[in-house]
């Protein structure tokens, strides 16, 4: 169990992000402010889905995005540790 990867690839973000973004999320690129690694959304390491999705830089594990789905809302932070947005989805 110890060496089993706990994360999935960034395509797991596509569904939840498409609920709140007007553009196709899988075409997004992300650049890490800590280690400088850049790449498409799919390269992020995604942990979850419960209690929420946490996407991390594959190079340095810095949090790139956090997303929590509730029945009527999606909570989202991009990059930073605090300052989440709550979007109504229903």
């Amino acid at each position: 169990m110890g060496d089993t990867p706990l994360h999935r690839d960034g395509n797991w973000l596509a569904g939840p992000l498409s609920e709140i973004l007007a553009v196709e999320p899988t075409r997004a690129w992300w650049r890490c402010p800590t280690c400088g690694m850049a790449g498409p959304l799919a390269q992020l390491h995604v942990y979850g889905p419960e209690p929420g999705l946490t996407a991390r830089c594959p190079g340095c594990t810095r949090v790139a995005l956090r997303l929590v789905k509730e029945a009527d809302h999606v909570w989202l932070t991009m990059g930073g540790a605090t300052g989440a947005f709550r979007f109504r989805t229903a």
């Binding site: 209690p51 929590v68 509730e70 909570w75 605090t82 989440a84």
Partner: peptide, 21 residues
């Protein structure tokens, strides 16, 4: 607020009062 508390989870989290979000 901590890691989950800052993205919608309840600040206190008492299971008997079902303080989830």
């Amino acid at each position: 607020p901590g890691f989950w508390e800052s993205v919608g989870y309840h600040n206190y989290g008492d299971p008997w009062r079902e303080q989830r979000t």
